[in-house]
Design a protein around this nucleic acid. Structure first.
Lengths: 336, 336
DNA sequence: TTGTAAGCGTTATCAG
DNA sequence: CTGATAACGCTTACAA
């Protein structure tokens, strides 16, 4: 790896005047278990510390058949929610003695497959994945090779373990409160209908209407993908259809919201923009928008913690359950 | 790593009816070099493909003394510029046959040190680092152990190789164009004065004034750190000092801008906000703000590519030069 | 209480 | 053209 000469455990053992077995045991905290003389322990530890001994990760994992690494696959790090997930997870992994590989799938199945294959070749001990398809067979195949937990998105109708936000409930609350203001028209802009976030978020939306004995107008429910341009396009289509803005707008992701806001800004600088703007996922810049925007905020720290806990449990051979992590609502327009 | 039985090169060799040496040579593309019979080559390759043979990364790196991994240390992934850097770099690394460890320092030196120590223990082959201090001795020490490139921030007055944006020039242009509009008062909000971005951005700011034979009013130049609250606080302080908004505002980072915008929104909903809002680093949501905001946009793909190229050069034993990567300006208010 | 030796899966050197 | 064999650095039975 470098011209800098690394010390091996043999060097340490020699310097301490013991065999490499003894050194190994001491350095792995097995001194007590093997009843090694306190003086020996001290000597070995001192030598190791003096020389900044660092065991070779590759040798160790070759022998132990554990790499001490985990993989995280997210669609894009430019998505704040996923960046926060990665950030939380990385810190947690580090504290738990793992090192995290973060890779991006760009929301494309073939990239996802390639990325995962590479992680498997690196022998990661476990995999946390924000899946970009509903390909249950694929993920199931992987989950047979190593501990796998789906994060942020689940695969519908599959027993694969997942950790996701309770989106349905929070969207329900957000929409229900808005309807309670006397709003009778809310446009819904969503992403790919086959991805679980779309399903879950739409479910909350629909349920809120049902609870009031109403049904959402189907022609105001749009679905494309989660790209900004799609948000713009759906807002434009909706506007054309109505000849005006709807009373309220819900964007199922912040990227879609960006498109919606871009349309409003471009169209008339928000002059006739809807009073009620709602979205899933948050960003600090939304604090400074011309209209207050109420958003569902995911708890990325909890998503990360729950995911890692499940990977660790799987590694320990324990059975695990999926988890719904509570999100909350950021009421910027506090009408509740 | 799992109960799933991995095939080793010995298994492949047996199945193909050759020795593991031959198998190894074939699978590493050395067949021609060792003049192995075409039939043998085909047989081995077919067996390997059939059984999805994947060589053990740990065994390989134990032997070759290369881990095939690189490390990237960024302050925070929630910073879009750094997230984009990580994303670009990860893809490039993957294509170059490396796997990237992304770790966050939270902009704290002790976290940075711990994180790097862990990466070193993992024997990463090289390190790309957005340093969070000016501690030249520390980084120099690391750079003696492995290829190291500083990214996005450099260490002032140190020969450590870096890859950073040409911030000074772009800020110069941004400010010069604004002054050319007849503006005579621009507040400057910056982060820690000892970090190179602060120095470089301020330099561009000052130079733009000088070029017109003017000097920026020192009392309108503020420095704290790059946290959002600091942006808010500096804007508040500036407002109090003047009893009004300045004619124009430059925020040296988007996080500071967020604070500035939060103040303006809270204060009077942007009613009396300055006409000229300028910032370093961009975000799509800025497209939807009540005022057009002109920003310097870094080329994260280029930063990533240049950094990786330098690491690879260092690994090949070549000498490298630092690089200034061209940024550009997103003129939302096109007065140029 | 400590040491010896056998592997973990590769690659590389050397003989055939 | 191909096959033994010896490392790489570490852990862990098994001996002493």
């Amino acid at each position: 790896m470098t011209n800098y000469q690394r010390l091996t455990i043999v060097d340490i053992a020699k310097l301490a005047g013991v065999s490499k077995t003894t050194a190994s045991m001491v350095l792995n905290g097995r001194a007590a278990q093997y009843r090694i003389a306190a003086s020996t322990v001290a000597r070995v530890q001192q030598v190791a510390a003096e020389h900044h001994f660092q065991p070779s990760a590759s040798a160790r994992s070759l022998r132990s058949r554990r790499s001490g690494t985990l993989g995280l696959v997210v669609p894009e790090l430019s998505n704040l929610a996923h960046a926060l997930l990665a950030q939380s997870l990385e810190a947690l992994c580090r504290d738990a003695g793992f090192q995290l590989f973060v890779v991006c799938s760009n929301d494309q199945t073939d990239t996802e497959i390639k990325a995962v294959e590479q992680l498997l070749a690196r022998q990661v001990d476990g995999l946390m994945l924000v899946p970009c398809s509903n390909n249950a067979k694929l993920y199931t195949k992987w989950s047979k090779r190593l501990p796998l937990v789906l994060v942020d998105r689940r695969v519908i109708d599959s027993p694969l373990p997942f950790v996701v936000s309770n989106a349905t409930e929070q969207v329900f609350t957000l929409i229900a409160q808005t309807l309670a203001q006397g709003v009778t028209e809310i446009a819904y802009f969503g992403g790919q209908m086959d991805l679980s976030p779309s399903v879950d978020r739409l479910a909350g939306f629909q349920r809120a209407w049902q609870e009031r004995g109403l049904t959402a107008k189907p022609q105001l429910i749009f679905h494309r993908d989660y790209h900004q341009q799609s948000g713009y396009a759906m807002m434009a289509e909706c506007f054309t259809q109505l000849g005006r803005y709807p009373e309220a707008v819900f964007a199922a992701s912040i990227s879609l919201l960006e498109g919606v806001l871009a349309f409003m800004n471009e169209h008339d600088q928000f002059k006739t923009a809807p009073q009620y703007l709602l979205s899933f996922d948050d960003h600090r810049l939304l604090d400074c928008m011309p209209r207050p925007i109420n958003t569902v905020v995911q708890d990325s720290a909890q998503l990360a913690a729950q995911s890692l806990a499940r990977i660790i449990a799987l590694l320990a051979g324990e059975a695990i359950e999926s988890a719904w992590v509570p999100a909350h609502i950021n009421w910027r327009d506090s009408y509740c």
